[in-house]
Write a protein that binds this DNA or RNA. Structure first.
Lengths: 121, 121
DNA sequence: GAAGAGTGATTACAGCTGTAGTCAATAAGG
DNA sequence: CCTTATTGACTACAGCTGTAATCACTCTTC
């Protein structure tokens, strides 16, 4: 799967949320704090097209953009990469890590336990 | 915390494993499949020094390199970034994701359950 | 039909990254 | 002493990224 850069990912998020959209519509929906001009968004869209993770369909004189990959697939691949690199492919150390860093609230713990119980059945 | 690139990270792994080391020693220990020349490793070391994540101590005419940050801190920061970006800061969806992708073996599940039980006490 | 607004395409440019090569200095070995 | 190997410093260069500006078209609206 083609790698998506950090900034480009923000554009993908918009389109995973809602598609198809025009470039202008994407620009409107990109988080404020990026502070991107329309030109920047257009550049991102071209690059994502070139990477094959977006498709565009003509709508008169402009394009409507759509993701060609599913968010969950990309997210899974990306998570896998991190786990392979930093945790030797094992997820338990990741959970342990997060736990040790207080990134797990009691509610989180309950939720995960419920999830695991589900999985075993 | 300074960002560490993918390739640079491979060098950090070597030094987290064993330090201090000379540039040549690091080069020997970098995974074969990178196929890096000594020159490449030296470049990485300089950049990591510039980023402040390594320190060097003179040993005659050469340097001995040491990490200045702990692996677990970096790994925690990096995991946090991914979780913030892709899972809105929640870890449960990440676990769910991994589960749905069959990245969790029955053994993993047991291990995580044990870990969580530990946490609650 | 002339002027303005919206659009994709093309170009720009600096910083980061992967991947070295070269150079000058120095240590080591004969 | 002279040669050779080692070492850090500096330079190189292409591809990716963030961040646009400009251009050439084409609708729309007087």
């Amino acid at each position: 799967m083609e790698r998506i850069a950090e900034g480009e990912y923000a554009v993908m998020e918009v389109l995973w949320q809602e598609a198809p959209l025009t470039a202008a519509e994407v620009a409107e929906r990109v988080p404020e704090d990026r502070g991107w001009s329309l030109a920047t968004v257009k550049t991102m869209l071209s690059r994502l097209l070139a990477k094959g993770v977006l498709s565009h369909e003509e709508d008169g004189r402009r394009y409507l953009y759509c993701p060609t990959i599913r968010r969950e697939d990309y997210v899974a691949a990306e998570s896998g990469r991190l786990i392979d690199r930093m945790f030797a492919g094992r997820i338990t150390p990741l959970v342990a890590q997060l736990a040790a860093r207080n990134r797990l609230s009691p509610d989180d713990i309950e939720e995960i336990e419920a999830l695991l119980k589900e999985l075993k059945s």
